[in-house]
Simulated assay, not measured.
Amino acid sequence: MTVHLGICSVAHLHAAAYADLLSGLDGVEFVGVVDEEAERGRAFADDNGTWFRSRAELLSRADGVVVCSANADRRPWIEAAADAGVDVLSEKPLGTTADEAREFAGICDAADVELSVAMPLRHSVPAQQARERLDRVGDLTALSGANRGHFPGGWFADPEHSGGGAVMDHTVHIVDLVHWLTGQRVAEVYAETDTRFSDAVVEDVNVLSMALEDGTPFLLDGSWSKPDAWESWGDAFLEVTGTEGVVDLDCFAQRYRVTRDADPAGVSSTFYGSDPNRRMLERFAETVRGAAPATPGQDAVAALAVVDAAYESAECGEPVAVEY
């Protein structure tokens, strides 16, 4: 069964990569894009597919859509897709607060459309291997992870469109991974944030000291702290320590380091592993055909609840219990 997939909004920096991947997936017809800014949509479509003048036009052609809007602009796209009976894969975070994300999940549920959220780390081979082996570590004693990257600039640094800075952008990835791997949720967060690497009005540094439901400590650095000349965009890793062993998970470990005299940075890296974004989009196509979402909306609500607590903690200077 061929499924027809499109992209709603190209504001997010991942939209181009998704368009390229969708164009090459077996059993998928990439029908094109629609954007809230006509000129931007047309320019994007010149390189990446057909441009539609309206949401209704694209949604009439699509079985599923990938929403790549700015964080604060998800609502009109998700509501329109739900009204049209079209399944949704939304960029993360699902909204700018857990309450907003919960509302979006409810809208899709009431319309009987599937809502998935773009959490590609679940689809990385190292993450899946770690999940298969996690029972060998015994009882959990500690978790430590990082998802550090370049300062993305643009609307990511504008709280009106992003809802926050590095906490909003990066926390959900590793928190969702921990929820998925361990079957436990984060129960409490103590957050320290700052702006040290840019002139943004949002935070670019954050360290979250958390505890899972069973009390296991969980430390996370989700800062925009990689310099522009770094060999790769950033990292995503997690160390899980238990009474019987350790699982050390690096989602992008499958890469070669390359040194070139002509490269201004001197060093770059080439990733050779399987692309988690590709597998995520393949799974969305499977969801449109009837499979369960890989990362359902309610899981994205849980990750955003941790973000809410982190911002509250950074403001009050005290640990904050996560409200699910």
Rank of each mutant, 00 (worst) to 15 (best):
D263Q: 12
T97C: 08
T97A: 11
E132W: 03
S90G: 11
V207N: 03
R74D: 00
V3S: 06
L25Y: 05
D20Q: 14
T171Q: 02
D112E: 12
Q184K: 06
L21C: 09
S162M: 13
G149N: 02
P152E: 05
L249H: 03
G266M: 12
D26E: 15
T182N: 09
G64N: 07
G317T: 03
F284V: 11
A300Q: 09
A309E: 13
D228T: 14
V246I: 15
V33I: 15
D221G: 08
D99W: 01
P276M: 13
G95C: 04
F104W: 14
E213H: 00
S90L: 07
A314M: 08
Y272A: 10
D261N: 10
I78L: 15
A98I: 08
V10R: 12
P217T: 10
D263M: 09
A62S: 07
E282D: 06
L13P: 00
A191G: 04
A84I: 07
S144C: 05
L143W: 02
E29Q: 11
R55F: 11
A62N: 02
R279S: 04
Y256V: 04
F44I: 04
V66F: 11
W155C: 02
L134P: 01
T182V: 10
S60H: 02
V301S: 05
P264K: 08
R75S: 06
A191E: 02
R185G: 09
R260T: 12
I7P: 01
V33N: 15
A84C: 07
E312A: 13
E192F: 05
L249F: 02
V175A: 08
F252A: 11
F218A: 09
P264D: 07
R74N: 03
T171I: 04
G49N: 12
H12P: 00
A38Q: 10
V117A: 13
A292E: 14
L25C: 08
G106M: 06
I174G: 09
S268Q: 12
E100V: 05
H179D: 10
G149P: 01
R133A: 13
G317I: 05
G24M: 10
D20F: 02
A309V: 00
E103T: 15
E239L: 10
E103S: 12
A62D: 06
R74Y: 02
T97Q: 07
T171D: 01
A211H: 13
A262S: 15
L181Y: 01
E286W: 00
E315R: 14
S60C: 00
V31H: 03
K226Y: 11
H4W: 01
G41K: 06
L58N: 03
H12R: 14
E323V: 15
A294C: 07
A229D: 13
V178W: 08
T259P: 00
L140M: 09
T182Q: 07
V31L: 04
V307N: 08
V172W: 10
S209L: 06
L13H: 07
D47R: 09
E114H: 04
H123Q: 14
W180P: 06
S198F: 00
F197D: 12
D261W: 12
A309T: 08
